[in-house]
């Protein structure tokens, strides 16, 4: 019998990054579950939001970075 993922399996694969990896058959089954399970789609949307929000908070240069860079250059050159 081929593997039939549960909500717990799908949620784990979304959060540990394996949703898009592994054997093709596994990926198809995960996607089939996602297509019919609104709860899992909601969870996946939350995980994507967390990643996007973290990128917005920690992925962009902070306002004070230019001053830090100038200090770093001055110290590294000395």
């Amino acid at each position: 019998m081929s593997w039939i993922p549960t909500c717990s399996d799908v949620a784990r694969s979304v959060s540990d990054g394996s949703y898009d990896e592994g054997p093709g058959g596994r990926r198809v089954m995960l996607r089939l579950h996602m297509a019919v399970c609104w709860f899992c789609r909601r969870y996946a949307a939350q995980v994507r939001w967390i990643d996007r929000a973290a990128k917005a908070v920690w992925g962009a240069p902070a306002p004070g970075d230019e001053a830090v860079k100038r200090r770093l250059i001055a110290r590294l050159r000395s």
Binding site: A54, W58, G59, V68, K69
Partner: peptide, 14 residues
């Protein structure tokens, strides 16, 4: 410094 300082600073803060 121009290329790597900001990403390294962001990582340290996070």
């Amino acid at each position: 410094v121009e290329e790597f300082a900001s990403p390294l600073l962001a990582a340290a803060r996070s």
